[in-house]
């Protein structure tokens, strides 16, 4: 490195060890925080959760995702969505039949008892019309899940 104002050249060695130390600490802190997240959730590329002043930490439960283009239970696609409506899926009295059947199956398979048994964790895109969400919740209530944990982003 050449220093101005003189004939001589100076080789400056910046001591990065201390900075590296701080970065390592930060890195480990973030990695531990990242891993200890109680509920893992995968959001679609285009899906956005609404922001809220809610502070409650997420807890694991059966997960239903109302994305922009599809409706999922856990990771399985149940129905396709277009313009806030269910495409090519049987509906009866407002209920979404494939969702009802899948949730009843999940409830039977998991065989959970106690207060956590009837709670559903719902991830819903912020632009979803309430009419669609209402039908999803109504179907879930029919399948034995009348309580919901609505996922939101902390403000």
């Amino acid at each position: 490195m050449s220093g101005g104002g003189g004939d001589g050249e100076y080789d400056v060695n910046i001591n990065l060890t201390a900075l590296l130390d701080i970065l390592t600490n930060l890195l480990f802190f973030l990695m531990v925080g990242f891993m200890s997240s109680k509920a893992s959730m995968e959001l679609d590329g285009g899906m956005q959760l609404p922001t809220s002043t809610a502070q409650l930490e997420p807890k694991k439960a059966v997960q239903v995702t109302v994305a922009r283009k599809e409706l999922r239970v856990e990771k399985e696609v149940i129905a396709n969505l277009r313009d806030g409506k269910v495409v090519a899926a049987k509906t009866q009295e407002g209920k979404i039949e494939p969702l009802l059947q899948r949730l009843q199956q999940v409830r039977k398979d998991k065989n959970v008892t106690g207060p956590e048994a009837d709670i559903l964790f719902v991830l819903c895109d912020k632009d979803t019309p309430y009419g669609l969400l209402r039908r999803v919740m109504m179907t879930a209530a029919e399948a034995g899940y009348p309580k919901f944990r609505m996922a939101v982003l902390m403000q």
Binding site: G33, F34, M41, P58, M137, P146, K147
Partner: peptide, 15 residues
């Protein structure tokens, strides 16, 4: 960046 995006909370609701 990921840490900020996963600060998820829940709102309990019932029917």
């Amino acid at each position: 960046a990921s840490f900020g995006a996963t600060m998820v909370a829940i709102m309990p609701t019932t029917v």
